[in-house]
Design a protein around this nucleic acid. Sequence first.
DNA 1: AAAAAAATATGATATTTATCAGTTTTTAGT
DNA 2: ACTAAAAACTGATAAATATCATATTTTTTT
Lengths: 225, 225
Amino acid sequence: MSKCEQCIIRQFNALRALQKDDLIRLSGCKTTHTIKKGEIIFEEGDNVNGVYCIKDGVCKLSKLSANGKDQIVKLVVRGDLLGQRSLISDEAANLSAVAINDMQVCFIPKHEIIHDLTHNINFSVDMLKDMAEELKLADKVIVDMAQKSVKQRLAETLLYLQTNFGEDDNGFLNIVLTRDDYANIVGTATESAIRILSQFKKEGLISTEGKQIKIENSKALKLIE
Amino acid sequence: MSKCEQCIIRQFNALRALQKDDLIRLSGCKTTHTIKKGEIIFEEGDNVNGVYCIKDGVCKLSKLSANGKDQIVKLVVRGDLLGQRSLISDEAANLSAVAINDMQVCFIPKHEIIHDLTHNINFSVDMLKDMAEELKLADKVIVDMAQKSVKQRLAETLLYLQTNFGEDDNGFLNIVLTRDDYANIVGTATESAIRILSQFKKEGLISTEGKQIKIENSKALKLIE
DNA sequence: AAAAAAATATGATATTTATCAGTTTTTAGT
DNA sequence: ACTAAAAACTGATAAATATCATATTTTTTT
């Protein structure tokens, strides 16, 4: 089993603030898990009882709305923590987490995190900084949802995926989402998302091969209105 | 000048975690301000250099979108802190803050807050809890924006104002917003907000007298779809 | 490899929301 | 109290988006 002291992933989140002895303690109580694509990590209302540190893979954080549609609020990726919001508020999960592809995660029990939060001020301040960044991003999403068209949001989502996940040797986005996921990220009907992607394809902005998407003209995508 | 040690407002925010000697120190460096309705407290891009503790009044936190419309992200009220997000991230303001009615605020310089954040773990954890709560609310707004109709959002906004600001002796909401503000909260065109309010009036769900709004049938408002 | 299921795609149409243009009412300033 | 400006309102129309129906393609299961 890998050791927290030697894990480089922690540099990407608040765990970077921990010292060697803390990390050794974490190593002793953490559990490592493989999560298959499509598996539910936790659902709204679940007691999470700890924090996941994402070593590899991606999951979607979503919330079920009254009309039965899932809204994806955030993609959680390698290096991110998962579950810290609920842990800090000491509440059941507010969002559901579902794996988008195969994942490797470490689970750190709640009491260990609480211990560090209440004894290591660097850790709590770093956690606070991470949370402040998340809040800023959430505010941006609110404004985009309220003021931009579905087409603009879908174009931005594609560009976001390009910059954050990169492209493979053939130029396809390094993350594969269903059309339904795209719809649930931009907040529209699945048919609408499909239609707009088809339109982008016709206009030569993207090309597709099954679920895979290649961005052909990112400049034009940025100019969509 | 009033003293932080005796101020009850701090019970509503993270400042509750501070001890008497910290509060006396704050009292010595804080400044008290009266802000008139419509005045700008800070704008996107400004360096805020501290945190405002709202003693009275309400302000809107908004962001200008590309199409020139302001999106109101949050109403900041008595007891709330203002400016802490930017301070923690050590960035210029991400949102603008404008007074919706006359306000009384205390301004606490940045270095004092930083001092407490890095020396008082109860304070940083409390700040973290407040921020986690804000993030949860922001996530809810994202889902509402994405999945609910303008009419639903406007109905919910009215109910939110009723529960959070209450009503005066005549039954009018204890907060007065312009139709433009309503539009900027729900993320729609001003005319659309006006039109829906008119419709609510015709249906007997609300009544109005100038800018003042009275909720006549909250049960029916909850059932809007 | 065949069958079943799921996902993608497209057309037709309905509904929602934005935009433009103009009127009336309210508010603020002198 | 009068005037100018701002805000609220309404109608007509255009544009965006959702919904329903159905066909096709892709993926999964047997």
